[in-house]
Design a protein around this nucleic acid. Structure first.
Length: 314
DNA sequence: CCATGTCAAGGTCAC
DNA sequence: GTGACCTTGACATGG
């Protein structure tokens, strides 16, 4: 249930979480270091992954100190984890490090997401693309499993390509989704994109599969089927079951003077307030896809502290 | 040392 | 059909 007022500490009242993706620009370490494939070696992998895990923990500590309780973990955490070149047992080798990070996340009641990039397309007609996609999804699920996070830690993907046949491509998505291991399926959610699949398309797929729908506000602005947000917000909400946690949502705004669809460099306070106002009856965790990362997240938290859904801890 | 080209992976659109 | 773009940091090479 939503909080009824800023000052009412209603038991079971959910506290909205706000976060940023993958990179922190303030603390001077990188949690997404990588290297060239041709330079692959187990030693290089151990060194880079070790660094990334250390930095991930540092970023989470920074977040905890600043009341940023939602974070997207970079897909580069373990470079080439799903590539055939990787024969190394990174799960065994880094088990304790993953557990340490996972414990920190659980102790501080943080929300976690991951977002594999555009190469993950499970509805592709190309079998090889699908195989690589599933391997990549498996890697993402393994990361969250190693951290012993519950099912509310999600992996978000887009529906995929259209291939000039949306109905057929949706059907293929549904078929492929149903064949996935449950370890992947329980964490997977679909997000409306800015070119092809609208919120309505995602909700149709939800109807067929039960997969939760992650609402991307900026994509919805750029690409929709005319579905009024007020009318579909309940459908989005109810696509997340109890174990999935409350819905996640991606928020961004247009960078002034740039190509349409370009994410803003820094948060537009007015737009963000309007967004909060428009979604008042919706309880969700907000991922800010804004280029200056934690800086805008801090500002968003200040703005949202006026909102009844968010109560800042002391 | 610094600047710049390049990096596993797909799909869409403009031309 | 070809190439730019998406989005993006950071590696790696060459000067």
């Amino acid at each position: 249930m939503p909080c009824l007022s800023f000052h009412s500490l209603i038991p079971m009242c959910y506290i909205m979480k706000i976060g940023y993706p993958c990179v922190n620009r303030s603390i001077g370490c990188s949690g997404s270091r990588t290297f060239r494939l041709k330079n692959y070696s187990p030693e290089r992998m151990i060194e880079t992954t070790g660094n990334n895990l250390d930095c991930l923990l540092e970023m989470l500590k920074y977040n905890q100190q600043h009341n940023i309780l939602f974070f997207r973990i970079s897909s580069d955490l373990v470079p080439f984890a799903s590539h055939p070149v990787c024969k190394f047992d990174w799960l065994g080798h880094f088990q304790r490090d993953f557990q340490e990070v996972g414990t920190f996340i659980r102790v501080h009641d943080m929300r976690i997401s991951m977002h594999p990039d555009q190469f993950v397309v499970i509805n592709s007609p190309d079998k090889g693309v699908v195989e690589r996609s599933v391997a990549e999804l498996r890697y993402h699920a393994q990361v969250l499993d190693l951290m012993q996070l519950d099912d509310s830690a999600k992996i978000q993907i887009h529906v995929g390509g259209v291939y000039r046949d949306k109905q057929g491509s949706i059907a293929r998505f549904i078929d492929r989704y149903e064949r996935l291991d449950s370890s992947i399926r329980k964490r997977l959610v679909i997000e409306n994109d800015d070119i092809s699949y609208t919120l309505n398309d995602c909700l149709i797929i939800h109807e067929a599969t039960g997969i939760p729908v992650l609402f991307d506000s900026f994509h919805h602005l750029l690409n929709n089927s005319g579905e009024p947000l007020g009318e579909v917000i309940d459908l989005i909400s109810s696509s997340w079951r109890k174990d999935d946690g409350i819905p996640m949502c991606d928020y961004s705004s247009q960078q002034e003077g740039e190509r349409k669809g370009r994410h803003a460099e820094t948060i537009d306070a007015y737009d963000f307030k309007e967004f909060l106002k428009a979604s008042l009856k919706f309880d969700f965790d907000i991922m800010l896809e804004i280029k200056d990362k934690e800086k805008s997240a801090l500002q968003a938290i200040r703005i949202a502290s006026q909102d009844s859904r968010l109560i800042l801890s002391p």
